[in-house]
Design a protein around this nucleic acid. Structure first.
Length: 205
DNA sequence: ATACAGATTGCCT
DNA sequence: GGCAATCTGTATG
């Protein structure tokens, strides 16, 4: 059987943990995804983090121990998954932005019928969560629990060059180069800068 | 109570 | 490239 990730490694500062997650494999039942792109969020000091304004019912898992997943619902329709990292209470986490489906491709395809290519199955945070079948019911799950369907496994092969750059989709603190990805991997999402939203109809700037 | 921005995606031109 | 879908948290009255 495959081993599970060491929780002590996840308790290190989030900026160290995030790049080290690349190449690791997140398994949920029949589907497994090799992580190729992640983003770090550092609770208290990070204006871009859900935890920046303190604990709420939604982000409570972020304030707990490392190794648990924080799954949130956004834009009224999508689930996204984070892995809580760093010391307990720090409320830092790593958003799982993209990966390569390495097991259970058929199941992933059935969950993502709009994906036309295999490398699109988990390219994007909501797509990754969908391909893995993650939803609100998985919020708080422990990826270090060997008896659970959701587990994080260490990288089995050496990863290539890791690049860093600005985070995606944030209007605040997006300039922090806390996005990490594997150079040249086709499953890495294309960068989309924050799109300023239109004011109410009829108004213009 | 209302307004609105947001760690997104899929479909449109 | 634009933009709709539609839930949560925050700011404001």
């Amino acid at each position: 059987m495959s081993e599970v990730a060491d929780r002590a490694l996840l308790e290190r500062p989030v900026l160290e943990v995030a790049p080290s997650l690349l190449g690791c494999v997140l398994v949920n039942g029949p589907v497994a995804v090799r992580l190729t792109e992640v983003e770090a969020y550092d609770g208290a000091d990070d204006p871009g983090s859900h935890a920046f304004r303190g604990r709420t019912a939604r982000n409570a898992v972020m304030f707990g121990p490392a190794g648990h997943v924080y799954v949130y619902f956004t834009y009224g329709m999508h689930w996204c998954a984070n892995l809580v990292c760093g010391p307990s209470g720090r409320a830092s986490a790593v958003l799982l932005r993209a990966g390569e489906v390495v097991a259970g491709v058929e199941v992933a395809q059935s969950r993502r019928p709009s994906a036309r290519r295999e490398h699109e199955l988990a390219r994007g945070p909501a797509r990754l969560a969908s391909a893995l079948g993650l939803g609100g019911g998985d919020n708080g799950a422990d990826v270090c629990d060997t008896a659970a369907p959701l587990q994080l496994q260490p990288a089995t092969s050496p990863v290539g060059l890791v690049l860093t750059g600005p985070r995606v989709g944030l209007s605040r603190a997006a300039e922090r180069p806390w996005r990490f990805w594997l150079d040249g991997d086709p499953t890495v999402s294309t960068y989309r800068a924050h799109l300023p939203k239109r004011r109410s109809a009829g108004r213009r700037s």
